[in-house]
């Protein structure tokens, strides 16, 4: 499956899960800030990607978990360098370079763009 084909299927998933217009689902659109995703929507997206692409997504594989609760990873509302390194290792599909400049935990979800989802699916399909 080409990257464009993956993008097109992800567009359908997000239109369905987030009730947004197709034209709003651009490669750079952020799931939370631009498309209005809330925490339960992340689970909905995980389920819909599993159904659409026929693979299983483990908890924490696509979106982070246990980061906020770990004092080694978050101090005074900011993700520590160790936390960022861990996120990078766990979530290689997401680009943390902009986030690193202002690593407020409240903004961590902004790294999840439509493009990050496409990369995630591309990697999963390649590993199949």
């Amino acid at each position: 499956m080409t990257r464009d084909e993956i993008f097109s299927k992800i567009q359908e998933v997000l239109v369905d899960a987030l009730a947004v217009d197709e034209e709003d689902v651009t490669a750079t659109a952020r799931l939370t800030t631009d498309l209005g995703a809330e925490s339960i929507d992340f689970l909905d997206i995980v389920f819909k990607l599993e159904q659409t692409f026929g693979f299983k997504i483990a908890q924490g594989e696509l979106f982070p978990e246990n980061v906020k609760q770990d004092p080694e990873f978050v101090k005074e509302g900011k993700v520590t360098p160790k936390g960022i390194a861990t996120l990078r290792a766990r979530l290689p599909h997401a680009d943390f370079s902009k986030f690193e400049a202002d690593p407020q935990i409240a903004k961590v979800a902004e790294v999840f763009t439509v493009d990050a989802l496409v990369t995630f699916v591309e990697r999963k399909l390649a590993a199949k």
Binding site: S39, I40, F42, L43, D44, F63, K68, Q69
Partner: peptide, 12 residues
């Protein structure tokens, strides 16, 4: 419908 298991919710 979507249900959340509250103690494992993604918002923490």
């Amino acid at each position: 419908l979507m249900f959340s298991h509250l103690d494992n919710n993604m918002s923490g």
